[in-house]
Nucleic acid binder design. Structure first.
Lengths: 249, 249
DNA sequence: TTGAATTTTGCTGTTTTTTGCAATCTTTTT
DNA sequence: AAAAAGATTGCAAAAAACAGCAAAATTCAA
């Protein structure tokens, strides 16, 4: 077999699977692992793939993972996401909602425990695909162009079939009196279904959103089990959320 | 045998198989390996093929050019995608499969007609979200980390509920005799369901994949209504795909 | 047709490239 | 920290490329 032919197949495999193991390639191409390693090294040098420990990944995949489109209030979101991971245990079944804070949680999910993760959000799903320890299930449905999540009756029906240990949700607006609200009716319906599909619901909410409200109501605060903000639970801004039958974290 | 005749045969072989070994050529042409080597060197000088260590590859094969937009063989894929758009009409309901060629189709969907588009592929869905004229529905299910598409029983069940006008699918491998094959059993099951959910199935297939096969079979070629490659339908490489009860485009 | 000049071809020995193996070092995982 | 998986290096055998040469084939002018 020609070297060119071999490298061609390697590129094909990489493009197809996004990541490949050198051992698999060696077996498939019926050459020694050293030869494959040399080929991959060469292709890496030509920027046609990215060599990683034990294998190679496609350029698309390599460029995809560390993408961060929204760096707005990133630190706060990271703080929130880290707090949220404290709920996770080996084999937890969770659901992650859309929104940039939830995306951050997806990105920061621990790599040392196995998780099953449902999501309605395209960007979250993308993030999760990069995690070998996370089994990801996308809740299908009509896609909302601005929020990039699945909505509509199909999504809601699919949600009615599951019950996850924890769901981590975001919200457009939250108010101690009015509860969680959104600007979009369909999204409200979907979030309701998410909450219904969860044993415990955790709200990830940057403090900017506190004491704001909009048109359509998702639920009252007592439907939420825990609210996580980037603030200390004792922070004065959170005063009005105490004695609301929800934990602050 | 005349030198000219020999070189003609060599070019033919290269065109047909994309790659040749000098030893094979020598045996087939019944001349010494040095003669073949000299012939190939000459043809290489004339830019009719590319000489490589131990053999030669076709120009197309060698032009698997280094990264452009992170996608290999982008030009070919664009050609294919453009051909595929000829099937679309106002309010068509279509399904777009995963894979880079299908992604290209998603990217090149016309913006002047309204479409309803189902997909199992995360990257395709991402692409479609940017199109105001396309209503996108994601078929939910377990996500395959490799191929970034939804697979599994849930996806298959969801597919069983729909019947689209056209589905545009890719395949890992295709062979005139064996039909469409894949490396992954789950993906095969999902693709079967896709074909079943379509009035017409269009296969998007870059010519490199022709005459290759793998472990698991998706379907025979007669299940496909149209096969689109970047080549002219009369191209010799497509010879074996004629008289197969499918249109070539 | 003949015979010298030219080209083509196959062979030889030499150099280069490729490949697999073993020993050693490094990274990752537990 | 130990164990396992992967990477690196050097080396030797095999395969291929190269250069030079002579025989064979082809061309061409007389």
């Amino acid at each position: 077999m020609l070297k060119e032919e071999r490298q061609h197949t390697i590129l094909n495999e990489v493009e197809l699977h996004n990541r490949v193991l050198l051992t698999d390639l060696a077996e498939r191409l019926d050459v020694s692992i050293d030869t494959v390693r040399r080929d991959v090294k060469e292709l890496d040098g030509e920027n046609r793939l990215v060599k990683v420990h034990g294998g190679a990944v496609s350029l698309g995949f390599a460029n995809h993972s560390p993408k961060r489109n929204n760096v707005y209030a990133l630190d706060e979101k990271i703080t929130i996401a880290k707090k949220a991971t404290s709920f996770l245990k080996e084999n937890s079944v969770i659901l992650i909602d859309g929104g940039t804070t939830c995306q951050e949680l997806a990105r920061l999910l621990p790599t040392n425990i196995n998780l099953t993760c449902f999501t309605l959000s395209l960007p979250v799903a993308m993030e999760l695909l990069g995690k070998p320890n996370v089994e990801t299930i996308f809740i299908g449905g009509m896609l909302s162009k601005d929020s990039q999540i699945a909505i509509g009756s199909n999504a809601i029906h699919n949600l009615s079939q599951i019950k996850v240990d924890y769901s981590f949700i975001g919200t457009g607006y939250v108010d101690a009196g009015f509860g969680l609200t959104e600007f979009d009716w369909d999204i409200v319906q979907t979030k309701k279904a998410v909450i219904h599909a969860s044993k415990k619901t955790v709200l990830l909410c940057i403090s900017e959103k506190l004491n704001s409200q909009h048109r359509f109501k998702t639920c009252d605060l007592n439907m939420i089990d825990t609210m996580i903000t980037e603030l200390e639970p004792e922070h004065p801004l959170l005063e009005s959320f105490k004695n609301q039958d929800l934990y602050l974290l």
